[in-house]
Design a protein around this nucleic acid. Sequence first.
DNA 1: CTGAAAGCGCTTACAG
DNA 2: CTGAAAGCGCTTACAG
Lengths: 345, 345
Amino acid sequence: MMKQKRRHVTLEHVATHAGVSRSTASLALRGSSHISEATRERVQASMRELGYIYDRVAANLRSKDSSTVGLIIMELANPFYSELLVGIHHELDKFGKTVILGTTFDSPAIQERLLSTMLENRVGGIILSAVPGSSSEPINRFRDLGIPLVLINRKLQGAECDFVGVDNVEGGRIAIEHLIRKGHRRIAFLGGLPQLSTWRGRKQGYDEAHRMAGLEIDPTLVIESRATRQGGIEAIQKLLALPSPPTAAFCYNDTIAIAVCMHLQSVGLVPGRDLAIVGFDDIPEATIFSPKLTTVSSYIRLLGEHAARLLHARIDGADAPPQSVIVQPELIVRDSCSDPAKKSE
Amino acid sequence: MMKQKRRHVTLEHVATHAGVSRSTASLALRGSSHISEATRERVQASMRELGYIYDRVAANLRSKDSSTVGLIIMELANPFYSELLVGIHHELDKFGKTVILGTTFDSPAIQERLLSTMLENRVGGIILSAVPGSSSEPINRFRDLGIPLVLINRKLQGAECDFVGVDNVEGGRIAIEHLIRKGHRRIAFLGGLPQLSTWRGRKQGYDEAHRMAGLEIDPTLVIESRATRQGGIEAIQKLLALPSPPTAAFCYNDTIAIAVCMHLQSVGLVPGRDLAIVGFDDIPEATIFSPKLTTVSSYIRLLGEHAARLLHARIDGADAPPQSVIVQPELIVRDSCSDPAKKSE
DNA sequence: CTGAAAGCGCTTACAG
DNA sequence: CTGAAAGCGCTTACAG
């Protein structure tokens, strides 16, 4: 497919031009200390003169290493994953690794296909945000092949590998504690699906905070939905249809929270006043949206950076047992969440 | 670096196991019609049994093609480029190409380094959103090497290659025509830098619409700034300090427009009422923000898809002269832009 | 329909 | 400090 208009310059040509052997040229090129300064300079001059392009792929083939890393996420058109990519790409860049991107749209079949493709493309390692409920078998296969894999954000049952994620239980807890401190007693948990390990964590935090405050949980206030804009709208509609709606809602994530707020506004209700809203993740939209979202920050970029660093350490041979990096979330108080008593901002 | 715990299974092993030669195994694997059904099945059974992983990189080396494409953009943490990536990735995926990502942060030096890295990584082609004012020499080098390169969004002087972008002149014109139709007579052009080909196009449309309506342009109403949130704030501050401010502002892009609106709100002004705002691009935030932005859609994803398709055609050997794909923009009327006469929404 | 040989562009021992 | 040889894992002519 790739056309070569001009004669392709290889190391062979450079070596001949510089009057040395291929091996010497190879060592000179990579700055080996076994090569005399004079020779190195001669080789470099030849490289420049001939317009030599180093073929890193051929080099990797021979030396059995890899300059790429696979990144598999749910989708790109999602601020959470965009931010994750930013963190990962930025960090990997420092190590001279390039990322090969794949999106699953939460399909287990696509995930398996992508995992195979990445293998075929000789990635040095994988960062995977796993499809909920997908098989851990292909993941453990990487371990057997000696190819490092780190799971990011979502845990996967049965997968024995490194993990980087936020403390969802803690995140759920601080969100609810904040709401309780504000005087709320009936607090909904809106959106997301129990298949997601993140959902279960946040729910557990929700439960624990209630228990610690001696508050009972009304199960009708826990409304599941897909973690999309549309899912958020469905959830808030169900909530508003309840005989006695709550005064506050903790949303599975900011996408849900924004959708909920928009729906409230569209029916003439004021988010923050008529229903206090707390989100999760602190995506960039959270500050653009009005009201500015009170939310639990996942430090998404940091998550990505941790995953990249951990993976890089593994590729470099750190052969320790599986490790987890858990980022501590933080409550970011903004405008979507006011006192239930005073009904005006 | 890459550890191989288990004995690595190569085509050699598969061939031996299936009782055929390496060449036959290679052909069978790729479904060549020169191989009998029986042999193919035998080879496939062996592949499965041995857990064979096809090495696409080695294959590409030998057959001199490439399954990767380089994408070089300004930055990832920018909705415009995120959307572009979505379109490109989605389309390239169909062709079985993986993208190698690079970000320049608008540094010419980084751009040159990335271009080299991509070359070293044997990309089959490049999609580049060029750093303004960067040299066209490295770009034309790709042409000489026979590696297709398509410029996206931003034009570059002196670069002889394919281009995909939006019709900025038309975009500027329809924005201003809309404002004029609404009754505005003094219209600012806010943000962006003349180094950007997109800025110059939009500015030209701004000029033309004024001329066609017989309106004079007040040059103090054209305020340059970096195309960032911060730049937008600076621009609107300068505008508000003017002795006789305009009734409407056409913003270089949506990021600027959102920053402008937020600043207006922060000083107690109402965007849309006190100052009509039109943006450009229609990034996802435009619908989340309040007021919902009236803007000129660049059809960002479509732009990306066009670029991917064009590049793919070039890689497949379409050896025609440089081609431009110009997407027609469209005005998306939402809420940030009301009549200057009636001072209430 | 299948196999033996050469080679893609590089690096890695091994000599000297 | 430098070179000749072998080989990474595959595909491509060329025979038969």
